Simulated assay, not measured.
Amino acid sequence: MKALKSHGFVVPAEIDGKKVRKLGDHFYDQIAVRVKDKRFKVMTGGLIDLYTDVFRSTDEDRALYAGFLPKSDPEGDPKFKAKTPEALYEKWRTWQMSDHAPLWLEINTDFTESYLQTIAAGGPPGPKPA
Rank of each mutant, 00 (worst) to 15 (best):
F9I: 05
V11F: 05
V11L: 08
A13F: 04
E14A: 15
I15T: 09
I15A: 11
D16L: 11
D16R: 14
G17Y: 05
K19F: 06
K19V: 12
V20L: 11
R21V: 08
G24R: 12
F27H: 05
F27A: 10
F27R: 13
Y28K: 00
D29F: 01
D29W: 00
Q30D: 11
I31D: 02
A32I: 08
V33L: 15
V33K: 02
R34E: 04
V35M: 06
K36R: 09
R39P: 02
K41D: 04
M43N: 11
M43D: 13
M43R: 15
M43Y: 13
G46S: 14
G46T: 14
L47C: 15
D49V: 07
T52M: 07
S57R: 13
D59Y: 03
D59P: 08
E60F: 11
D61T: 02
D61A: 00
A63D: 12
A63Y: 04
L64G: 02
L64Q: 13
G67W: 04
G67N: 01
G67T: 01
L69M: 15
K71W: 05
E75V: 09
D77Y: 07
P78R: 09
K79N: 12
K79R: 13
K79D: 13
F80C: 04
F80D: 12
T84P: 04
T84S: 14
T84I: 03
E86T: 10
A87N: 03
A87Y: 02
L88E: 04
Y89T: 01
E90H: 11
K91W: 06
W92F: 09
Q96T: 09
Q96N: 11
A101M: 10
P102E: 10
P102T: 06
P102L: 05
I107S: 05
T109P: 00
F111K: 00
F111E: 04
S114C: 12
Y115W: 14
A120H: 06
A120P: 03
G122E: 10
P125A: 01
G126R: 09
P127A: 15
P129C: 05
